[in-house]
């Protein structure tokens, strides 16, 4: 695949992108927090060196927190159904870190497992993902454990990196990405040679928490569905949904009908496995009735069930759940309880 140099600065490149009539979504400070928001002009953009990562992930643009599935009205005894329209404008999501970009290859699998989720894939197909390599990290990051690195481009269509001379260049990862760059030819220039790797990325990779052996972790999980450790690991959990709602890969949802006297809407809302209501049956029975069982579900789903089905882990090591947890439950430390670190030379 081709590589392209960004001719002027990063902001000009974004200007070019905005002129192509895409809805551009990128990290932006809004009401005091850094989150992926719609960008209206290039001045608002943060360059990849200006942030570590956003508070919430990008999944809300593909799998919104709340999404109408169908609308309906009643007239007498008749019910009329109406499909829900999804925005038609093509989108560019810009500046995702490798951990967020990688989440799409995970979500794609689950949203077409047994049934293809039309809503997710319509949005997915219309969107181009531009990743950006990490230029800094914090104590929560652990992407190396899940097989990623500060400069891994997995899941992205285009990837922004710095070369040896501290200049930004674009790596076309997919054809979709390459087609976008071709439209931006005023802002970019094709590079003949493969650019030299910036040593910064290797340095960051070393700063990140040590790699845990997830194969060993899975082996332990395979045999320890019943283990008193779960009780201990979850004892301080307060059953909020911070971890699941900020996670780029958590995808549980709940379907709810909101009905007025003559109309209604069926909605898909995010759900979180730590809630008391999670998997509560209408009979009143709940197979996961204690914190320990719900926390086990969280860890098992991430590192065992998903691995059984798709041979991947349902975690990208972004560290959002660790940053957000009010009582400092740290999934990295939890997995380390039952799996060794990988020996590094």
């Amino acid at each position: 695949m081709k590589n392209f140099k960004i001719k002027n600065d990063y902001k000009n490149f974004v200007k070019g992108l905005l002129s192509l009539n895409y809805l551009v979504i990128a990290p932006k400070y809004e009401n005091g927090i850094l989150k992926f928001s719609k960008i209206k002009n290039a001045a608002e953009i943060l360059s990849p060196s200006e942030y570590i990562n956003t508070v919430s992930s990008t999944k809300e643009y593909f799998f919104p927190q709340t999404e109408p599935v169908i609308k309906f009205t009643f007239e007498g005894k008749e019910i009329f159904l109406k499909d829900v329209e999804i925005g038609k404008k093509p989108k560019v999501v810009l500046g995702l870190r490798p951990c967020d970009a990688a989440s799409f290859s995970i979500l794609d699998d689950i949203f077409q497992y047994e049934y293809k989720d039309e809503f997710y894939f319509t949005r997915r197909e219309k969107t181009i993902i531009i990743g950006a390599a990490c230029e800094s990290n914090d104590e929560s990051c652990f992407c190396t454990t899940t097989g990623l690195a500060p400069d891994s481009s997995q899941g992205a269509d285009l990837f922004i990196e710095k070369n040896n001379e501290e200049e930004y260049f674009l790596r076309a990862v997919t054809e979709k990405g390459e087609r976008l760059v071709e439209q931006l030819i005023a802002e970019v220039e094709e590079l003949e040679e493969e650019p030299k790797k910036n040593p910064l990325y290797e340095k960051i990779e070393k700063q990140i928490r040590k790699k845990i052996d997830l194969i060993e972790a899975k082996k332990w999980l395979d045999n320890n569905f019943e283990n008193e450790k779960w009780e201990e690991l979850s004892s301080q959990c307060l059953s909020c949904g911070s971890c699941a709602y900020l996670c780029p890969t958590c995808h549980c949802f709940d379907i709810v009908d909101e009905v007025n006297y003559n109309s209604g809407v069926r909605r898909k809302n995010w759900d979180a496995c730590q809630f008391d209501l999670f998997t509560l049956h209408s009979s009143g029975h709940n197979p996961r009735d204690t914190k320990a069982k719900r926390y086990r579900q969280r860890v098992m789903h991430k590192f065992k069930y998903y691995a059984d089905r798709f041979d991947k882990t349902l975690c990208t090591g972004c560290g959002r759940c660790i940053r957000a947890c009010p009582v400092n439950i740290d999934i990295y430390e939890v997995v380390k309880e039952f799996a060794p670190l990988v020996e590094q030379n």
Partner: peptide
């Protein structure tokens, strides 16, 4: 309105 729009209803405020 600007502040509450951000709420994702994770109910951490209630749980803590």
């Amino acid at each position: 309105m600007n502040e509450l729009e951000k709420c994702v209803k994770c109910y951490a405020c209630r749980q803590v």
